[in-house]
């Protein structure tokens, strides 16, 4: 990418992100204003109107406009309704860089727990999906039996099954990484099946006839035509699959308890009203998701380039 093209999207994206941050800071004021006014009043600052009772039913925006005195405090509270961006960044920094990665207070530790379950599940799910797709392409009976269900399964909220899988496996004594990996495998399985089948079928009649004129066997057609042709489709569905895997792991961590993982951080934050912790965990999941998708994109770019497709 040359410099001009980069500038073409860099500046607009930067402006949009900057606008979001500014809006976020502004939103903090009405969101946190009531609590800020309460503390200010206790410290003897004059606010209008006085008394919690008088303010209870007033609009937060109106209160924010009438009391610029407390604005600064809305960005520095301990348990704000909406933490300011710098508070979230500070929490992220504190829980990643300032504590040991093996400590239970470290976000790196929780992120690793989530990441390992996600990766295990993703590898199982994507692998099984690719194998099933190969079967579907080569067996008409399998195609007609399984494919409608694979497609239908994408329209249903499979995630609802997560708490039950955790509890059932727990009753068999299976705990820790495996139950979460199963759910995350389950979620990445179907997108990969559907995408891979599409990819393996993407060679047109012309290409297939060409293979036949060379009297290629089914195996040769598969390895030299179908599999390479499926690469772009495979990578597209792997990206969707890894994102759903991560969501699956996080949701699986909600009932799993055990006190580990980013999903647990979200839940415990919401139990104890630790909003900054929730936001930090949320950003950690976002960074994780972006990282995983970026890694697959990188492999995709490298592979397709070597294949001469990109």
């Amino acid at each position: 990418m040359d410099g001009v093209a980069a500038m073409k999207w860099f500046l607009p994206v930067l402006s949009v992100v900057a606008a979001i941050v500014v809006f976020w800071y502004l939103a903090c004021v009405p969101m946190n204003v009531k609590f800020a006014m309460m503390t200010a009043e206790r410290q003897g600052v004059v606010v209008s109107p006085e008394g919690v009772q008088a303010r209870r039913d007033m609009s937060a925006i109106l209160l924010a406009v009438r009391n610029p005195v407390v604005w600064a405090d809305t960005w520095t509270q301990d348990k704000p309704r909406l933490p300011a961006p710098h508070q979230v960044v500070a929490e992220l920094w504190k829980t990643t860089a300032e504590v040991k990665p093996t400590s239970k207070r470290s976000l790196v530790f929780h992120a690793w727990v989530t990441l390992s379950a996600t990766l295990a599940g993703f590898v199982i799910g994507a692998g099984a999906g690719i194998i099933l797709a190969v079967g579907i392409v080569h067996s008409r009976a399998m195609d007609m039996s399984v494919m409608p269900w694979a497609i239908a399964s994408q329209t249903i909220p499979i995630l609802a099954i997560a708490p039950m899988i955790i509890v059932v496996l727990n009753s068999f004594g299976v705990q820790g990484l495996l139950p979460k990996a199963i759910i995350s495998a389950y979620l990445s399985f179907f997108p990969v099946v559907v995408g891979m089948v599409k990819g393996l079928r993407s060679p047109g009649p012309m290409d297939l006839d060409q293979m036949r004129t060379w009297s290629a066997t089914r195996a040769q057609t598969f390895w030299k035509l179908r599999l390479p042709a499926s690469a772009p489709y495979l990578f597209a569905s792997l990206k969707i699959g890894v994102a759903s895997s991560l969501v699956g792991t996080i949701v699986a961590e909600l009932p799993a308890g055990g006190g580990q993982g980013l999903g647990f951080r979200l839940l415990s934050g919401s139990y104890y009203g630790q909003t900054v912790q929730i936001w930090a965990a949320l950003f950690a999941t976002a960074i994780l998701a972006a990282g995983l998708v970026a890694i697959i994109s990188g492999i995709e770019r490298g592979t397709l380039k070597r294949m001469g497709l990109a």
Partner: peptide
């Protein structure tokens, strides 16, 4: 605006947004 919103939108669409649930329930 479009050139700015589209990449940001696709980026956020790939995030595990369901994690905002505890915040919004609060």
């Amino acid at each position: 605006l479009r050139r700015g919103l589209l990449p940001v939108g696709s980026f956020v669409a790939a995030m595990p947004i369901v994690g905002t649930a505890p915040i919004l329930v609060m």
